[in-house]
Design a protein around this nucleic acid. Sequence first.
DNA 1: GCAGAAACTTGACCTGCATCAATACAGAAA
DNA 2: TTTCTGTATTGATGCAGGTCAAGTTTCTGC
Lengths: 239, 239
Amino acid sequence: MLLETYKVACSNCNLRELCMPIGLSQEELQKLDDVVATRRKVSQGETLYRNGDSFTSLYAIRTGFFKTCVSSQDGREQVTGFQMAGEIIGLDGITSDHHNCNAVALEDAEVCVMPFANVEEMSREFPVLQRHVHKIMSREIVRDQGVMMLLGNMRAEERLSAFLLNLVQRLNARGFSRSELVLRMTREEIGSYLGMKLETVSRTFSKFSEEGIIEVKQRWVKILKPDALKRIFDPDSFC
Amino acid sequence: MLLETYKVACSNCNLRELCMPIGLSQEELQKLDDVVATRRKVSQGETLYRNGDSFTSLYAIRTGFFKTCVSSQDGREQVTGFQMAGEIIGLDGITSDHHNCNAVALEDAEVCVMPFANVEEMSREFPVLQRHVHKIMSREIVRDQGVMMLLGNMRAEERLSAFLLNLVQRLNARGFSRSELVLRMTREEIGSYLGMKLETVSRTFSKFSEEGIIEVKQRWVKILKPDALKRIFDPDSFC
DNA sequence: GCAGAAACTTGACCTGCATCAATACAGAAA
DNA sequence: TTTCTGTATTGATGCAGGTCAAGTTTCTGC
């Protein structure tokens, strides 16, 4: 029992730099442990929440990989993002008290369940946490603006470059290779996110491969010439 | 002097149902008046803030009409939204303490300047306001997801339908006609928002007009068959 | 192991929208 | 009023990426 409590604590979590505000004392962190109520496992293919579900909690991803997607009445699906360890999902539910998209695990995952009432209560007590929550939501808004730019203005090669560079950069921040990655999503899901068809995704991968920019074998990708990718499109050089 | 104080107060503002949490007592509302520090006039064509400006405040639009847009290094511009009276802009600046897009007035405008420090302080004191701020940010995230769906999955006619229906619905909520509107933006700006070229916007307007769905004369638009528009694409029937 | 399904690749062809270009129109300034 | 400038419309043409289709590879369940 004590062991379980220990395990659930943010203060002892190796992802706390990603989830939690930085620069907190150990004591403050321990107080914030209470925002997380429980953990929840979500196995590959299962949904953490779906459109219409009533909203109660935010989720911090501990392990695994998610996609979020919305769909129109006629069945068209739009992937709105891919999320990995340390990232927070569920923010879409706050406006209307019910979720507005589906969150699907693309590999076996575990999330920390943070009842939003706890988050708000703690935020009132700890300005640092309050600011942190605001920053997380604002970051999501800025990310969305980047996706709009991608979908509205970029060509297929630029989209895929931006996508790969973004993924590898986030993976690198989590201690993974800067040049090698295993895609957790299908070509169709990449296409949905990037506003192109799966065939075009595949063709663009092949083109990059032929040009020696990357090496691809199904879901495994190695970036051979990061500079060439950045020349096609550099998400960092966004003003 | 007293008159000026009176004028700036949220408690006496006719837009408070749009900006402020509903169901507050007059007394509570008066306490919240302090979130607004000043007013600021922005004339047509001027920017309220631009990418890179340091972030200090959110802005509630009192009168006028804005666009927000991001641009890439090579000069491509993406309009990320159009905002009207009662809506809050500036949320993009919270993450990094500097703004991430430009906010340009499309007609002479006036905004209420709400220093973010005030907003956060008041939020700690008034849970209703805290919740309200969270909802506003979440609403923006949900709106962005809708734009992604638009840009990623829709055809030109669907995009323009969704755009017109959304605009007229928001205008109607502000007491304007449900069927007639004057566009505040150019065809190019509409195109940028919808991920299409100005010529395509113009052609699509003409097509709708030929089909008797709308009547267009430059920026003035009258919706003759709202149902026909909704059949092309209904933003409400979004699941 | 094998069978079937799912995911991926590649080719051939097509189309919706972009591009280029010319003209029309409206508001602002002189 | 006229001219100027920014904006909008419309036509002709081209192409990036969509669509359709066939074949291959990988994964999964038995």
